[in-house]
């Protein structure tokens, strides 16, 4: 009894501590979203849902957004996994330096980094100049204003969100486990599939869900690097709200995007359960 009361009191105490943050989020974040969502449910707007779902154009944009998000996530995973393992084996000084390099882009404005990509990929940018100079192409090719540019930019910007959770799990693995695996006859591939991957799967899934969800909603990259050729849902929403002043439609599209994000989360959650099984408790507690 008394203990239960103590627990409640403790909980109330922590609630008091987080309440300013909760209040801020509630007023500035949750309330506007709720308002927008309620607008979409008004009688004159509810038909928008049917319109979005039945329209080939908008469904194609949703599909395109998802496709780009999956590509970015996979590329980031392939880039970040070996990098995380590499960083985890560096000396403490080198590790600090490596993290510095990883975090600087995070601290730099997305807009600045996007403009940097525009310069890099431009007609007279360093990449085109190099290609021409090396004789790989005769004349500068179009790199910017393409899906390639959008994917390259997003991959770069979202890489730390993949790297950090994976690094976090990898660095917690006892390095002697890799020696043990090698000594017991496991090659590089078996060591990866039987030891490294199962022991870092939680970090991998966390990184995958972060990057996937963030890339579903990215706006700046497709807007500035896509040159209007890369339709994604965030652009469509902006167009509805900004150009057509059709807030209800923008709200409907947002709601559909949110449902897609939630389904994605749910699938990853399911995957986590499947991969980690009941073992997480035994292995990591």
């Amino acid at each position: 009894m008394n203990q239960g009361f103590q627990a409640i009191k403790a909980q109330a105490g922590s609630l008091a501590l987080v309440s300013p943050a909760l209040l801020l989020l509630g007023i500035l974040f949750f309330y506007p979203i709720l308002l927008l969502f309620l607008t979409t449910l008004e009688l004159e707007n509810i038909g928008n849902y049917a319109q979005v779902v039945s329209s080939d154009t908008s469904m194609q944009v949703f599909f395109n957004t998802l496709r780009i998000a999956v590509i970015v996530t996979v590329v980031d995973l392939v880039l970040a996994y070996p990098l995380a393992v590499y960083i985890s084996r560096l000396s403490p000084t080198a590790k600090t330096f490596a993290f510095f390099l990883v975090l600087i882009p995070l601290w730099t404005s997305q807009l600045v980094r996007t403009y940097a990509w525009m310069v890099l990929l431009g007609r007279n940018g360093p990449i085109n100049n190099a290609l021409v100079w090396l004789g790989i192409v005769d004349a500068p090719i179009r790199l910017a204003n393409s899906e390639f540019a959008v994917i390259a930019g997003m991959t770069h910007i979202l890489l730390p969100y993949m790297l950090l959770p994976i690094y976090n799990s990898v660095s917690k693995i006892d390095p002697s486990l890799f020696d043990a695996a090698r000594g017991l006859g496991a090659g590089a591939f078996s060591t990866f599939t039987r030891v490294l991957m199962p022991l870092s799967i939680q970090g991998v899934l966390a990184g995958v869900s972060l990057v996937l969800v963030l890339s579903l909603g990215v706006f700046i990259m497709p807007a500035l690097l896509g040159g209007g050729r890369v339709p994604v849902i965030a652009l469509l929403i902006e167009q509805q709200a900004g150009s057509f002043l059709n807030w209800a439609m923008a709200g409907t599209l947002s709601a559909v995007l949110m449902v897609i994000v939630m389904i994605t989360f749910f699938i990853i959650k399911l995957a986590t359960r499947l991969f980690v099984r009941g073992r997480a408790d035994a292995a990591f507690s």
């Binding site: 006892d174 000594g183 039987r194 030891v195």
Partner: peptide, 16 residues
């Protein structure tokens, strides 16, 4: 792996 050596590590290095 080629040496066919069984090793017991100081911290046992069991796969958790």
């Amino acid at each position: 792996g080629k040496r066919q050596i069984g090793m017991v590590f100081q911290n046992y290095a069991l796969f958790p």
